[in-house]
C-alpha cells in the first residue's frame, strides 16, 4: 500500500533544504511525497479530538509563480512523480482543511515563525500541537539537507518510547540501515529496559538490525548526546508520561531537540503503530 508523506513547500532556500530532506526520507522509505504549495497563510488540520489552525510564516507564499516549478524540479531530479495536494474542503473561503490521514508529515522546527527565529532549542507551538494530536509521526528536518546513514532510537521505557522503538524498527527494516538504541539509565539497571523491550515482543525484531544499545549511566543527558552519530535519523517519542504528556513536550525530547541538529522523527502520544 502506497504510504504518503505530507510536505508543505516553502519557496525559499530553507524550504528547498526541507523538501530535499523529505525527498530523501521518501526515497529511503519507499514513501510518496505529497507536496502542498499553500495559497493562503492559514489552514486547519482536523485531528481525532483536536483542530489545529496553522498560521504559516508569510515566506511560504514567496514568489508563487516559481513555487511550483521549484518543487517539481526537486522532485523530478529525484526521479519522483510530483504529487501536488489541492485542498478540497474549506472551513471558510480563505481557510482550507488539510487532511490528516497521511502516514508521515514533514515540518521544519517552526511553520508559523520567521525562519530567522528558527534554531536549536526551538520548536514552534503549531508543530508541537501537530505532534500532540497526530496519528502519524512527524519528521523535523535539520536546517540543511543532511542524508542519514543509520537510525538512533531514544528509549526511556515509557509506553510512548516503546512506540518510538517500534517506529525505529520499522524505519530500519524498510531502509536496511542499522539501528542504535540510547538510554539514559542513570542509576536504573539496564535489565529493566531490556525487560520492557522483551515484554513488548520487540526482541526478535531487533535481532538482525540492532547495532548496539548504549546506556548512559554517568554525566548529564545533554552531555551524553555527543555520542549520538551525527549522520543518524533520531527517532523518539514525545508527550510520553501520563497526564503531563498533555502539557509538556517531555524533558528528554526538549533536551534532544535543543542539543543535536540531526533529523528527528517524532512519535506523539496519539501515534498509531502501523503493522
Amino acid at each position: 500500500m502506497a504510504q504518503r508523506l505530507f510536505h508543505i513547500f516553502r519557496n525559499t532556500p530553507l524550504g528547498r533544504e526541507t523538501l530535499l530532506q523529505s525527498i530523501y526520507f521518501c526515497q529511503q522509505m519507499g514513501v510518496l511525497p505529497t507536496v502542498y504549495i499553500p495559497e493562503a497563510t492559514k489552514f486547519l488540520m482536523y485531528f481525532e479530538n483536536d483542530v489545529v489552525q496553522v498560521d504559516l510564516d508569510p515566506s511560504y507564499l514567496n514568489d508563487p509563480e516559481t513555487a511550483l516549478t521549484h518543487a517539481e524540479h526537486l522532485l523530478k531530479a529525484a526521479k519522483m512523480k510530483p504529487e501536488l495536494f489541492t485542498p478540497k474542503n474549506f472551513t471558510a473561503s480563505t481557510l482550507p482543511d488539510i487532511p490528516t490521514n497521511f502516514e508521515f508529515m514533514c515540518c521544519p522546527r517552526s511553520i508559523s515563525d520567521l525562519s530567522s527565529k528558527i534554531g536549536l532549542g526551538y520548536i514552534g507551538p503549531r508543530v508541537r500541537r501537530i505532534i500532540q494530536a497526530a496519528r502519524f509521526p512527524v519528521l523535523i528536518t535539520s536546517p540543511v539537507y543532511k542524508p542519514w546513514q543509520r537510525i538512533a532510537v531514544f528509549f526511556g521505557g515509557s509506553a510512548n518510547a516503546v512506540n518510538a522503538l517500534r517506529l525505529g524498527i520499522r524505519v530500519a527494516t524498510l531502509t536496511n540501515l542499522r539501528l542504535d538504541i540510547f538510554t539514559q539509565a542513570g542509576k536504573n539497571d539496564p535489565s529493566k529496559y531490556r525487560a520492557i523491550v522483551r515484554d513488548a515482543g520487540l526482541e526478535k525484531s531487533l535481532e538482525n538490525i540492532l547495532e548496539g544499545w548504549t546506556f548512559f549511566e554517568k554525566k548529564r543527558f545533554e552531555d551524553n548526546l555527543y555520542d549520538v552519530p551525527h549522520d543518524a535519523l533520531v527517532v523518539l517519542g514525545a508527550y510520553g508520561h501520563g497526564i503531563i504528556r498533555d502539557i509538556m513536550f517531555g524533558s528528554m525530547m526538549e533536551k534532544i531537540q535543543s542539543t543535536i541538529s540531526n533529523n528527528l522523527l517524532i512519535a506523539g502520544p496519539k501515534y498509531t503503530v502501523i503493522a
Binding site: K42, L44, Y46, V51, Q53, T91, A92, S93, L95
Partner: peptide
C-alpha cells in the same frame, strides 16, 4: 485572532456535519 471570518453559523454546521463538531478555541 487570525480567524477566517464567516457568518459563524455555517461554520458550526460545517464542523458538526464533517468533523464531529470540532471547533477552534478562539
Amino acid at each position: 485572532v487570525n480567524e477566517g471570518a464567516g457568518h459563524g453559523v455555517p461554520e458550526v454546521i460545517y464542523a458538526v456535519s464533517r468533523y464531529g463538531g470540532l471547533l477552534r478555541l478562539r
